[in-house]
């Protein structure tokens, strides 16, 4: 543990986190412990009801401040303990984006620009800074061209980027995304993944729950594998997706890994299988290496 006297060098520290929703008898999160360093991109995988969403809610303080229930263990976000903090204070440390673009629109604003400013008005940011932050968010998400449109007139993909813009305008150092592309078409998903990677390049720490393994493999640093609320593994995508028992946890590796496993194409140095198209081709000898840089 790197923490000493409440001060820590890790962006996120989760220690023996347990959580049970009210009126249920199963633990949604059962003894989860991991640490995330600044600037890392973490993927959360697992079957439905493995605890992915609950973990996202716990990192942003919705658990235990919005959802009651039994809570044990500790979550530190940038040195602040979630349990004793508030959702408002945490929202400036760790932002949350979820799957449904519609319900993330406040419905009280008539333009994208005003929508993004909503959170900043609530936390009392000065006008000048507000404008600066909204402009920055619009630019990061590549949505300057729709800033005067009504949020409800947008496509799902655009709306989801507005949702992300609204959250990053709060200037969190961590962004938590719960299946942000599950309701989008391939092109819109691609756009959302692209902006997430861009935010990562800006130094924002990213935690993302997703079913699209091929996408996760291509841009995450580490993968957290959950099963029935328990933490099964927390390691590089290569290590996690090379596990032989992955199937037991209701998860399949990227197609590329499945192929290489079947063909016995292992990276001798790391003793793992490739997880992206680019890794497959570099293992094959490096021709066409520029193919999957995205």
């Amino acid at each position: 543990m790197l923490s000493c006297g409440g001060f820590s060098y890790e962006k996120i520290i989760v220690e023996n986190l347990k959580y049970k929703y009210p009126d249920t008898d199963q633990l949604a999160l059962n003894d989860v412990s991991f640490e995330v360093e600044e600037g890392e991109v973490i993927g959360i995988v697992g079957q439905n009801s493995a605890g992915k969403s609950s973990l996202c809610l716990a990192l942003t303080g919705l658990i235990p401040h919005f959802f009651n229930g039994a809570y044990g263990g500790k979550v530190l976000i940038d040195g602040i303990e979630v349990k004793t903090s508030t959702i408002t204070d945490l929202s400036q440390k760790a932002g949350l984006v979820f799957d449904n673009p519609f319900t993330q629109m406040t419905a009280s604003k008539y333009t994208v620009y005003d929508e993004i400013a909503f959170g900043l008005e609530n936390i009392g940011v000065s006008r000048e800074e507000m404008i600066e932050r909204v402009d920055w968010s619009l630019k990061m998400m590549g949505i300057e061209n729709i800033k005067d449109k009504n949020p409800f007139d947008l496509s799902g993909g655009q709306m989801q980027r507005v949702a992300i813009a609204s959250v990053i305008a709060m200037r969190p150092e961590i962004l938590v995304l719960d299946e942000p592309t599950s309701q989008l078409d391939p092109q819109a998903s691609e756009e959302v993944f692209r902006v997430i990677q861009q935010l990562s390049q800006e130094g924002i720490t990213i935690v993302i729950a997703e079913h699209k393994m091929e996408k996760l493999a291509s841009f995450t640093d580490r993968i957290l594998l959950l099963y029935e609320g328990k933490q099964i593994d927390f390691d590089t995508p290569q290590k996690v997706f090379s596990r032989d028992d992955l199937h037991d946890y209701g998860v399949v590796p990227p197609i590329f890994t499945t192929y290489c496993k079947a063909m016995g194409m292992k990276n001798k140095k790391t003793n793992t299988y490739p997880v992206t198209l680019a890794e497959v081709s570099s293992l094959l000898g490096g021709e066409n290496n520029e193919w999957n840089k995205s």
Partner: peptide, 13 residues
């Protein structure tokens, strides 16, 4: 869902 989205944008500040 919307109240979660509002919460994380400081609605209760």
């Amino acid at each position: 869902e919307r109240s979660i989205a509002l919460e994380v944008r400081g609605f209760n500040a």
